[in-house]
Design a protein around this nucleic acid. Structure first.
Length: 237
DNA sequence: GCATTAATTGGTC
DNA sequence: GACCAATTAATGC
């Protein structure tokens, strides 16, 4: 397409597992095979049930990864930013994607085919090791999430979701760097948009949160953390 | 500016 | 605490 060809050699994403293990010439003939995909905001680039088409890495941008439930209800599994992996659960055995992935803003993706990934993993042990750590970490997060969903109150889940966004994307000028609709927060926290709205407005009244339209800002991070501290063993999930 | 969508609030089960 | 309905604010065309 026009211009944007993501190149591993000039990429700035130090957290990207490919970039991290991009050992100059050793992996170059592989990374050259990747495909760069530019997504518009709202674009559904991974469709639940569609055949697996390799692994995706975010070169630049943000996306949400979700599973669709019964009556149109959505469960957002995670949000991803620069350097992160999407579609890793379909890698290997999986024939079809079990998740949806939608770009939340203009996003550039690097797509590696399964074959390319396989030969890279077989050739570069450092990369394989990092992948193993990544999968283990993902599983850990997933288990932590189960506990949270079962034991936290809605208020705590919403606070947790907001803190998660802050951890992952940070704030600038007093507002979170990721703008989500109330419904998206609800779909992530496992509740309804009405509940999210109510909790946000009370947190606002309590002076813990700032809200201007879709923009959300955390005023008192330690206080919010303290509120969920009882449940949380401070494993940043 | 109008029309669709999102945010908000109140109420019921 | 989810679901529904009504109102209002925001945003796209």
């Amino acid at each position: 397409m026009t211009g944007v060809k993501a190149d591993c050699s000039t990429c700035k994403n130090s957290t990207c597992l490919i970039k991290k293990n991009y050992l100059s010439e050793k992996a170059k003939h592989h990374t050259d095979k990747k495909v760069t995909i530019a997504c518009k905001k709202g674009q559904n680039f991974i469709i639940e049930g569609a055949p697996v088409h390799g692994l995706f890495f975010v070169y630049k941008g943000k996306a949400k990864v979700a599973k669709t439930g019964i009556n149109g209800r959505e469960q957002i599994v995670r949000f991803v930013g620069d350097g992160e992996i999407i579609g890793h659960r379909g890698f290997g055995g999986g024939q079809f994607y079990q998740i949806n992935a939608v770009a939340l803003e203009h996003t550039v993706l690097c797509n590696f085919s399964n074959d390319t990934m396989k030969s890279m993993l077989k050739e570069v042990p450092e990369l394989t090791y990092d992948f193993m750590l990544f999968y283990a970490d993902e599983l850990n997060r997933s288990e932590t999430k189960v506990k949270k969903f079962a034991q936290m109150t809605v208020r705590e889940k919403v606070i947790d979701a907001i803190l998660y966004i802050n951890r992952k994307f940070g704030q600038s000028n007093g507002f979170l760097n990721l703008q989500l609709s109330r419904k998206e927060i609800a779909d992530f926290a496992g509740t309804t948009d009405e509940q999210v709205i109510r909790i946000i407005s009370s947190l606002k009244k309590e002076g813990l949160l700032l809200a201007e339209g879709k923009k959300l800002g955390i005023v008192d991070i330690p206080k919010l953390k303290k509120e969920i501290a009882d449940h949380n063993f401070f494993l940043d999930s």
